[in-house]
Amino acid sequence: MSNTQGKPKLAVWKFASCDGCQLSLLDCEDELLQLADSIDIAYFMEASSRQVEGPYDLSLVEGSITTADDERRIRAVRDQSRALVTIGACATAGGIQALRNFADVEEFTAVVYAHPEYIATLKTSTAISAHVPVDFELQGCPVNKRQLLEVISAFLHRRPPQVPPHSVCIECKLRGNVCVWVAHGTPCLGPVTHAGCGAICPSYNRGCYGCYGPKENPNTASLCHWWREELGADQATLIENLRNFNAAAPPFERESRRQEQRDGEE
């Protein structure tokens, strides 16, 4: 066994999710072994059957809270963690499974399962921050692995992570992309969406669909206005775009509900 004495202890936790964000850590093919040399990966069930007891210096939490057991488990994780960082849209905003927050979960259960009575689930899917204090939220569905390494490094060196809060538009300009909205009339959530992906959708000739969630202070009302007025987007398209992987992120949720009401008034 390697010498783990004096190394900071890292734990990786999973709640309701697809495993894609923790996989991003294993996708750091060039850095993984070096990372494992400088920290003790003390708890990471997807990658190791070794389980070292807490407390942990840094906990990375993937996934959202959707069961009563998980409501209890996240508090136990917080109690054992010096710093707790959420990774990805599920842990930060409830994820795609938060679409249940806008619907009837009992009806959902009946659609998928023959015996709904076997299924224990909450009516909502909620972000980790709704349950325990969180030290940093890394957005993205999935997170960017470079940013993930930056966040781990920052917390282990006790400095703030360098994760710019600006919009995808800035990344698009830095890449030298032609604007898909201005040049092609393609609806794009770039102006209100948090940077981090590297503006990949516009680079592949499609509009941003908001998988990195809201940027700092997004003007979603103005975006919706221009989508309607200039691009002829209908209500369904607006709501579908605001209500996907970050549906329950407060700025997106507020705007999608406002758009719903607005159409009711028209």
Binding site: T66, G95, F108, V111, V112, I119, T121, E240, N244
Partner: peptide, 21 residues
């Protein structure tokens, strides 16, 4: 693993979203 109900919340979504969701 807690259920996430994909088959239920796909209803009403646009056909182009199926691969992304």
């Amino acid at each position: 693993e807690p259920p996430r109900f994909f088959e239920a919340f796909m209803r009403g979504r646009d056909y182009l979203e199926a691969p992304d969701i």
